[in-house]
């Protein structure tokens, strides 16, 4: 474990917590893409499938973190699609999730480290996570704005994988550890946030709201 990975995981936890708090406190999921949250839930379940296969006692933080990610993301989907369904902005959350899931699944079968069920599920979850934020970014571009709290969520969510890139550089240098698939997907994922990062740093940090030219 290194400082980049630690802060990356903390940033990821913060993102999940910020979104849950936003929905719970405002009792509304306006401006939140339910599809992105569904895709994240699928990512966690397919990536941490080992938790269900051979349940080992919760002796280490990694198992606890995996369970937190899975339960928090499923609970977030429950809030969006059931509890606060009336506030879900389905009209603007219109990016076809199939256009992300099918290519990720196909690519996972073609490009993977080992043609093994668990490994392909892991690879699928890595590819899917790289593009899972697209419906959320698409929704913001459609509505032309993002609530400040949603911007903080996106900043934390984007920073998590950006910090993981620093973690991979660190591990390559000191542990000569390389996980090419995760690195390439992680770089693509972070690049997708670039224009949001620009808007966040130039606007939200100065207390302005993100309003896109509609």
């Amino acid at each position: 474990m290194n400082i980049f990975r630690l802060f990356g995981d903390l940033s990821h936890l913060a993102a999940i917590a910020i979104l849950l708090l936003k929905i719970w406190k405002t009792r509304s999921c306006a401006g939140v893409s339910g599809k992105t949250q569904l895709l994240f839930a699928v990512c966690f379940i397919t990536r941490y499938i080992d938790l269900f296969l051979h349940f080992v006692s919760l002796y280490n933080t990694e198992k606890v973190m995996k369970l937190i990610y899975i339960s928090a993301s499923v609970f977030t989907c429950y809030l969006i699609f059931f509890k606060f369904k009336a506030t879900y902005d389905g009209n603007h959350d219109s990016m076809r999730a199939e256009f992300l899931i099918v290519p990720a699944a196909g690519l996972a079968c073609l490009i993977n480290t080992k043609f093994d069920a668990i490994e392909i599920l892991w690879t699928f979850s890595i590819y899917l996570e790289a593009v899972a934020i697209l419906p959320q970014l698409f929704l913001i571009s459609k509505t032309g704005e993002a609530e400040t709290i949603t911007s903080h969520y996106l900043f934390a969510q984007g920073s998590y994988r950006a910090l993981y890139i620093l973690n991979w550089i660190y591990r390559y240098h000191y542990e000569s550890h390389v996980d090419t698939i995760a690195i390439v997907a992680g770089v693509v994922q972070t690049i997708l946030y670039c224009d949001f990062f620009y808007l966040y740093i130039t606007k939200v940090v100065k207390g302005q709201k993100i309003v896109l030219p509609a």
Binding site: R5, D9, E62, K66, T113, K114, E119, N167, A182
Partner: peptide
């Protein structure tokens, strides 16, 4: 058989 990579990250 070659070892399946241990993806030790979350």
């Amino acid at each position: 058989p070659e070892p399946v990579p241990d993806h030790d990250e979350l």
